[in-house]
Design a protein around this nucleic acid. Structure first.
Lengths: 219, 219
DNA sequence: CACTCCTTTTTGATTAATCAAAAATTATAC
DNA sequence: GTATAATTTTTGATTAATCAAAAAGGAGTG
């Protein structure tokens, strides 16, 4: 059985490598997990010895197929749990990430299978992220960043790529939740801002915030 | 935050001390947790230093009020989770103990509160064990051991005090689940056995097995 | 009171995960 | 092509939890 720590490293590697495409640097890995680079190096070695990652010293790490499969399953557990907490236990979407972060390491496959059934085999979690299927298939929808959209463009919110509770609360309070349709009113490159029509109200976001909102074009 | 290990020691101490009445020996504690006596001694010291237990070297341990409160909350979490897994996720009653053993250490108070609500504030878990209330009240119903019942006595199964999956499967297959009404047909001290009428069938149990079934007298 | 038995505690080692700080390596700059 | 900066790796220490085995303590027997 894998430790929670190992699972967290695998998950971070999956995310940072773009589903396992590019090598991840020790520094980025360490930063994303909030540990020192030395700690990351030593765990990378452990993963490499276990056949879960491939390490070229000084040139980064990459998950092996086995490591990637395990990581995808952790992500699957995480996202099913999140949706379960929102849909069945009626928790707020901004608090489930932290909770799922804990649960993902201890729930059995049996429990996940039953949650999956109860939720009627969902494919998207509360933040718009895809739920990998049980066989390990993990498809990312092609999406655009809101910050890149042109004026007048109508879009549908696809996902919020920030799990920070207060950002999620803010987004929700302005109708920026997955599925919502909004329209880009103005875009000002110099002001580093974009103004949207959402929910009967107008709201202006800086590009940094707008970057965290991924959308699909409408019409 | 307490580690899972500490929570498991507290829980074991609560159980072995009869809700905190009598001192627990290092050996019994170690046996119940499947560790060596030396490990138990060292954890007992840790608990004592943290003010969670009271240790008289060579004369056993006892939880402090603070330790007992924490232990009761672990038990509450465990039992709500068990019931949740059976009633909401429709798991088998013989598999939920192991699952709850893991989950009890990571679910937040928030999740427990929501499960509690969804289950409509239950007081008994799937095995007939009482669920401590959120304020720490923990009442044991006065029950009898089936092995002590007289011939002709009609009783209702109150709880099964054995979490072993195969024993639970066996009990269930003969209708020995909490709430079921059965009648003692014969009792043979020398044969160390008791024969019951349950579920349209007659079944004979040795006293050791009958000891694991607690009942309430009927009529 | 001394001897034996059983239990408990102590001691010393091990494993997983971490950090701080030193050492090594790669990349960059001139 | 050496010096400098940045990153990565190594080293040595620490913490929690464990075990095996040695040492100590308590209780009962004669």
């Amino acid at each position: 059985m894998l430790t929670s720590t190992v699972e967290n490293y695998l998950k971070a590697l999956l995310m940072l490598s773009n589903q396992g495409e590019k090598r991840v640097s020790t520094g980025d890995l360490a930063k994303s997990l909030g540990v020192t680079p030395g700690s990351a190096t030593s765990m990378i070695k452990t993963l490499a010895e276990a056949g879960l990652a491939n390490h070229k010293p000084h040139y980064g790490v990459l998950l092996t197929d086995e490591g990637r499969t395990l990581a995808v399953h952790v992500v699957r557990r995480h996202r099913i749990i999140e949706l379960f907490l929102v849909n069945i236990l009626e928790m707020e979407w901004d608090e489930v990430h932290v909770e799922a972060e804990q649960l993902e390491h201890v729930v059995s496959d049996e429990v996940i299978a039953r949650m999956d059934k109860l939720l009627e085999y969902p494919t998207i979690d509360p933040h718009g992220d895809p739920i990998p299927s049980a066989d390990g298939t993990f498809i990312e929808r092609p999406v655009h960043q809101l910050s890149q959209c042109e004026e007048g463009q109508r879009v549908q919110v696809a996902r919020i790529s920030d799990q920070n509770s207060s950002f999620l609360k803010f987004a929700e309070s302005h109708g920026l939740t997955p599925g919502a349709t909004i329209e880009v009113q103005r875009r000002n490159e110099h002001a580093d801002s974009i103004t949207l029509q959402s929910n009967e109200e107008e709201i202006t976001l800086g590009f940094t915030a707008a970057n965290r909102i991924e959308v699909e074009l409408v019409g």
